[in-house]
């Protein structure tokens, strides 16, 4: 059976890679490349959060009854990170690369702390409680990665 920790942790690394490209473009003050790379990162991150919030977390909460536990904390942090993504996007468009770089650094730090908590604590718990629901895990994994843009 596919595991949450294996696929979702790998997706964390994929997000990191795309973030690094965006950050490099911001540092080089290349507005178009920075905007494009950051938009790709934003989409990838959003797809990751949706897979968790719409599939994994509800199944985890239903199985454990923990609606105000670790999954609730993670939801709150998702909102915080998406808010920061929006701020960075606006700063890139405004051409304020110094502030965009500083805020992207903050976003990256929060993202790493968040990922660590998920990988150390929440994902192992999810794999444990969702072991009888392989279809749920497979559905969530299928949602990871860059979404199709029409």
């Amino acid at each position: 059976m596919a595991s949450v920790i294996e696929h979702f942790a790998a997706d964390h690394r994929a997000c990191d890679e795309v973030f690094a490209r965006a950050e490099q473009a911001i540092a080089q003050r290349m507005q178009l490349q920075a905007a494009d790379a950051f938009a790709r990162f934003h989409l990838l991150l959003d797809a990751h959060f949706r897979a968790e919030e719409e599939v994994i977390f509800p199944a985890f909460e239903a199985a454990t009854g923990m609606t105000a536990g670790p999954s609730a904390v993670m939801r709150g942090e998702h909102g915080e990170m998406l808010g920061l993504c929006e701020d960075v996007r606006r700063l890139i468009i405004a051409g304020d690369f110094d502030e965009a770089g500083r805020l992207a650094d903050t976003l990256f730090s929060i993202m790493q702390a968040h990922n660590m908590k998920e990988e150390q604590i929440l994902y192992p718990m999810c794999d444990q409680v969702l072991s009888a629901q392989p279809q749920v895990v497979a559905d969530a994994i299928a949602r990871l990665g860059m979404p199709e843009v029409s």
């Binding site: 915080e80 920061l84 701020d87 805020l103 903050t106 976003l107 730090s109 929060i110 702390a113």
Partner: peptide, 16 residues
């Protein structure tokens, strides 16, 4: 800055 931004976010004060 990492711990402080996490704390600010947890307080609902934004991470900046």
């Amino acid at each position: 800055p990492f711990l402080i931004t996490l704390r600010l976010a947890a307080l609902g004060l934004g991470a900046r």
